[in-house]
Each structure stands twice: as C-alpha cells, then as structure tokens.
Amino acid sequence: MENSFDKGYQLIKAELFRHLRVSQDAYKDAYLIRRIKARMRKLGINSYMEYYKLLKRDRKELDELLFTVAINVTEFFRDPVVWKRFQQKILPELVDYKKSKHQMTLKIWSAACSTGQEPYSIAMSLYEVLGDNLSGFRVSILATDIDRDALSKAMKGEYPKDAVESQVPKHMIPKYFIKDNDRYRVHPRVKRLVRFQYFNLLSSRYPKGFDVIFIRNVLIYMKKEAQEEIFEKLYHSLQDHGYLILGKTETILGKSARLFKLYDLVARIYRKNLEVK
C-alpha cells in the first residue's frame, strides 16, 4: 500500500487510534490515507512527519482529523429502496409478529448514526406506518456513534432547510419538522423516540435485544477481521426474529456469512440464521 510504511504515517495512525480507542488494524490503510491526505492538502503540508508534528502541538487539528476519519456521510432516507422495504415489509411483519406474541415493544438500533438523520428517519417511518397504533407500543430507538461532535449535532436535531427539503418526502415535512428561518427542527414527538449515546463498534460489550439493527456504510472502511468480529457481536445483539440492515455496497463475507440469511439482496437486509451451532 502506497505510503502505509512511511514512519510519519505510522505515528499519525498511532495517535489517531489512541484517541479513537480502537486497534490500529481496524481501519483500512487506503481509507485512512485518503482522509489524512485531504487534511494535509487543505493545510498545504506535503510530509506525513510534518503533519504528525502539527497534530502533537495543535489539539484543534487533531480533533479535525478525528472528525474526518469518524464522520459517516449521512442523509434523511438515504437509499430509498431500503426505506421502502422497511416501511412496507419489515415493519408490518414485525408488528404482526409482536401482536402474535403479545409483546408490545419495538427496539431498534441505528449504529454509526453520525449526525442523526438515520434514527430520525426510523422514527418518522414508525409514525408513517403505525400512525395512531404507535401509542400501543413501547418504542426505543438507540442511536450510537464514536464521534461525540456528530452526536451533539444529532441531539440538537436541527438541519439546513435545503437538506430537509431535498431529502424528506414533501408530505412528511410539516408533520415531523418545525421551520425555523433557514433551518428545520425535528418535531419533539420524533425526538422523544430516539436516545443518543456514545459507542465504539470495536468494543467488546454490545447492547442486546433488538428487533432491527441498521449498520450502514461504516463497515466498508474496516478490515475483514474487524468486520467479522462486529458481525459476531451483532448476531448476539439481535432477537431471533430480528433484521440486520447494511449499506448498499456492503455484504457479509467470510466466517460471518453463516450467521445471517439473506432477506433482500437489493436493500441489503439479512435475518438471523437460527441454525448456527
């Protein structure tokens, strides 16, 4: 890999992961090099060692790099086919299952939620599908990320007018947002369904008992070994009837493939494989 053996790059990587609290082999070098080079170009720096020295004396730049590496490009209702399947197939199936078992809880996890558009899209989908029936369920949407700045933006629930108007179906905007000059605020009834929390996907202890887990467009940046560990832990975090929703360019490979059964190839949705010994 070009540049990956450079001493300055290795020092930057060590510094980065010391603060992110993840192991140095978790992310692909190609991804890290792209992110680091983008910061270096912006500052007019050509050498990794020079940039490393800047990181050591300038905490603000280190924070910028941490944000650049951890950031997950996100938007409301990203990849419409996923939301169509979620609203038209998964939620109705889930509700029927819950009613048959006399269980009136819905527990969903948005892992790597970035600035909050995904968990709020989940909450809006629940209102759209269940309407008045939503009050009959105890709903819990856990939204986690490793980036504290992104989480703090997510908790505010304020987004630029252009982003909301170009991403959210028109009929939903007045129902779930409050206009505030050139921004939109997420309506309190949507916000109350979501709980934001710091979480590192490479940690050993995972929350459990979820009906649906969204983990989209984050695993592609990680090495295969790290992905396999995460899939193993996600398997145990899902209820037996649960659904796992990945990003459209992601798939489950290697040893982890036996843990899940494909439910929808186009939308990259999987179910737990209960035959795993």
Rank of each mutant, 00 (worst) to 15 (best):
F177A: 06
F260I: 01
L219D: 02
A267W: 05
R189D: 09
D145V: 07
N72V: 05
T144G: 13
N72K: 08
L134Y: 01
T68Q: 08
E64Y: 15
D145Y: 07
L253K: 15
I220P: 02
D211S: 03
R271M: 14
P119R: 03
P169K: 00
L55V: 10
Q24W: 09
M172V: 06
K156R: 09
D182N: 06
Q117W: 06
I220L: 08
Q197W: 14
Q239Y: 00
F199E: 11
D29K: 02
E64W: 04
L244W: 12
T144D: 01
L16Y: 03
E275K: 08
L234V: 00
E61N: 12
I33L: 11
P160R: 12
K175N: 10
P92V: 15
F5I: 13
K156I: 03
L66N: 01
L54N: 07
G44F: 04
K277D: 07
A123D: 01
L201Q: 02
R216N: 09
K191V: 02
D162F: 13
L201H: 05
F196Y: 06
K98Y: 01
T105L: 10
D29F: 03
D149K: 15
R59I: 14
Y270E: 00
E228D: 08
L66G: 10
Y243E: 05
I108L: 09
R21K: 13
L142I: 09
H19N: 10
F177S: 01
